[in-house]
Computed example of a mutant assay.
Amino acid sequence: MQRGKFITLEGVDGAGKSTHLPFITELLKSSGHETVVTREPGGTPLGERLRELLLHEAMHPETETLLMFAARREHIDKVILPALERGAWVLSDRFTDASFAYQYGGRGVSKDKIKTMENWVQGNLQPDLTLLFDVPVSVSCQRLAGARDPDRFERENAAFFKRIRAAYQERASSFPARFRIIDSSQSLESIRKVLEDIFISI
Rank of each mutant, 00 (worst) to 15 (best):
L9N: 02
G11L: 01
G14C: 00
S18W: 06
S18Q: 05
H20V: 06
P22E: 05
L27E: 02
S30R: 02
S30T: 03
S31T: 02
E34N: 08
V36M: 01
V36F: 05
R39K: 11
R39L: 08
P41R: 07
G42C: 15
G43S: 05
T44W: 07
T44K: 06
G47L: 12
E48P: 06
R49Y: 15
R51M: 15
L53C: 09
L53R: 15
L53G: 14
L54E: 11
L54S: 10
L55I: 14
H56P: 13
A58S: 15
M59N: 11
H60Q: 15
E64W: 15
T65P: 13
A70H: 13
A71V: 07
R72F: 13
R73D: 13
D77C: 04
V79I: 13
W89Y: 12
L91W: 09
L91R: 11
R94V: 10
F95Q: 11
D97H: 06
S99N: 08
A101K: 07
Q103K: 06
G105P: 07
R107S: 09
R107G: 08
G108P: 14
V109H: 01
K111I: 09
T116D: 13
M117N: 05
M117E: 07
N119Y: 07
W120T: 08
Q122P: 03
Q122C: 10
G123N: 00
P127F: 05
D128C: 00
L129T: 05
D134A: 04
P136A: 03
P136R: 03
S138G: 11
V139R: 02
R143T: 12
R143Y: 08
A145W: 14
A145F: 09
D149T: 12
P150H: 11
D151W: 11
R152N: 07
E156Q: 02
E156H: 03
A158F: 05
F161Q: 04
R163W: 00
A166R: 00
R171C: 10
R171P: 04
A172D: 05
S174L: 03
S174V: 01
S174F: 00
F175T: 03
P176K: 01
A177N: 13
R178F: 09
F179P: 11
S185D: 06
E189S: 15
E196K: 03
D197L: 14
I198N: 08
I198K: 04
I200P: 00
I202E: 07
I202H: 00
